[in-house]
Design a binder for these strands. Structure first.
Lengths: 199, 199, 199, 199
DNA sequence: AATGAATGAGTCTTCATTCAT
DNA sequence: GATGAATGAAGACTCATTCAT
């Protein structure tokens, strides 16, 4: 019961925070949006700051939760990364507000939220780093950059495409194109190339 | 005279906005930081919002100004992009606050500032798009993605590295490494490769 | 409940506005005067301006409300006008602040308030105009001036006497004398006269 | 020299005070309107309040100055009053701002300005009272009201018509009609009448 | 004497937070 | 547990006034 109300508040908060930013969002609107009166928020969260923390935490958890079991494994890095990116985009579709909050906060490196985000995103990044390590071993990925940092870059590029998607009002890139695009940008780069093994 | 004071105010504002964000920054502090009493800001800017606009504008202009004459031209895309990225980093060194504000705002896609940023960054993006078009013609760059969007990606990757630099408190990547890193990430990608023409 | 507080705030506001004028009156004082903390006003009115509007509106309504049923009708204009003026004075006794605000504003022809006053005073003026029209028909009142404008004059003269009452600190005219005085001034004028029908 | 600048400032101040009221009028605008920079006002007046006082004083003086020699004398009160009212209206034409300030202040019974106005208007009121006293003696004016108070009423009615003129944007009454109208209202009243001496 | 940049006291207004019901 | 009225700290903004030039 208590948990359900809490959830409703967090979801409403995510919406408001995504639309207005943390400063501009008003507790009143959040409560109303969730179907309660102003004061109710304070029966569940000690402060606006704490509510925001809960939103970020939930956002990070949601983002991570769906990756479990998504990785097809196997030898093809590209395919594995695309699968992850697709999972991420599908999460985004159901949680656009949460993701917006997450990305905006990540890019704002606010001392209070950055560590939270890092902490919760760690599993995701590690999973990617794992895939990359496999791929380095298999000779599919360059070995002159540490996998964890390449993983960060991959997550970053994904976020970047989200930002451009939102910034262009959905004009470009379309959500559907993002997974492939992200992997292409991350993996292949802009240069013309002859794939390994091509004659 | 008037211009100098204005400049001082904008610089102080950039500092405060970079540190605290637009909402948290207090007009009082900005004026004090610039060495004036609180009312002085309002002799130069009609409102906090306008001051912020001036900071963004200045940030965008500074970012662009240094690219003039930086492009070495010639046939090597990589070298040209590295030169531009180096110029950008050197601008950043002198204007860290401005760039922070710029990047944070760009990533927050706020309706009021996003267009301003787009407008002022356009020349920079176009310059890169030009280089990429040359490179496409020369067969150095893939022709399946439109140059303007690749240019956006390049700028995005650069910004991403700044964010990671700031987010890690300068840990990784170091400023000095960013130009090379950005070009590598953008141009080469993560895949192992044999450069065009290698046997 | 909510209505009571609103009323208390309006009453306090009327006091402060009457004493200090709209510019000089401070929201703080109004709230305190009403027995609340300063912020409370804003739970009921969006701005000082709106609160002022509410005061003017209430003032006009109070002024009008008591005229209902006051007019004795019958053939004697003088008596009917005196009855109305007496009602007006009795309203004034209970609402001195409101009336002061009303009169001051009416005489200041401020674009924002003048229409409000006109609108709300219209019924009163119309009632008087009606009485005068009757009287014109009955041959008691001159027919060379339009009744609505004569009605305005009557209201004006009444207000004028209030102003002189306040301006002289109650010295002259006394409130009790005002109804008779107003009707005399308006109806009879200063000239010596022989009433119609006197030999 | 000094006197001329002072005069220009007072005239500009009158304009601004008339348009915006004493609180809303800004020193800056007054100075600019007079053709000077902001600071100049303070070389002539110690404060805004003092400047306002000077405007009121000047307004009162201008209002009075033109009555000298205007009174045609003779036996007809009506004619003498009309002459005075005409003089007043003609003064008003050249000094609309000053008169507006004066009337508004008179109706606002502000402790600081009311005495000033009374003081300066006294000669005018006395002159009218004199005429009325003559008329009482001649049996043309009722003897049951003290002439000074009747004089006040006359001035009041005149002001009232100005207010209605301004409040209706010049619609009614027209300036030209005011002298006759004022005397009619004051002298004859609204009642049908047979003038003294009519058969 | 004129200027206009700088000052800072004074207010309105917002809104997170408290708490009695 | 929900409510929403009351609170009051905080901060943007105005503008009369000062004063160095």
């Amino acid at each position: 019961m208590r948990e359900i109300v809490r959830e409703r508040l967090i979801t409403a908060a995510a919406r408001q925070f995504a639309e207005a930013g943390i400063e501009q969002a008003r507790i009143d609107d959040i409560s109303t949006d969730a179907g309660f009166a102003k004061g109710t928020v304070y029966n569940y969260f000690a402060s606006k700051e704490e509510l925001f923390g809960a939103v970020v935490e939930e956002a990070a958890q949601r983002a991570v939760s769906r990756f479990a079991g998504v990785d097809p494994g196997g030898g093809d890095v590209r395919a594995r990364l695309v699968a992850l990116a697709q999972a991420d985009v599908s999460v985004l579709r159901d949680n656009e507000s949460f993701t917006k909050v997450l990305v905006r906060e990540a890019m704002s490196f606010r001392p209070t939220t950055y560590p939270v985000i890092e902490l919760h995103l760690a599993p995701f990044v590690l999973q990617i780093a794992g895939i990359l390590t496999d791929a380095v071993t298999a000779g599919q990925v360059r070995d002159d950059l540490p996998p964890p940092q390449m993983a960060l870059m991959f997550v970053g590029i994904l976020s970047l495409l989200y930002v451009q998607h939102w910034g262009s009002n959905g004009d470009w890139p379309a959500l559907d194109d993002i997974p492939e695009l992200a992997v292409t940008a991350f993996f292949d780069g802009a240069a013309t190339r002859r794939k390994e093994g091509e004659s």
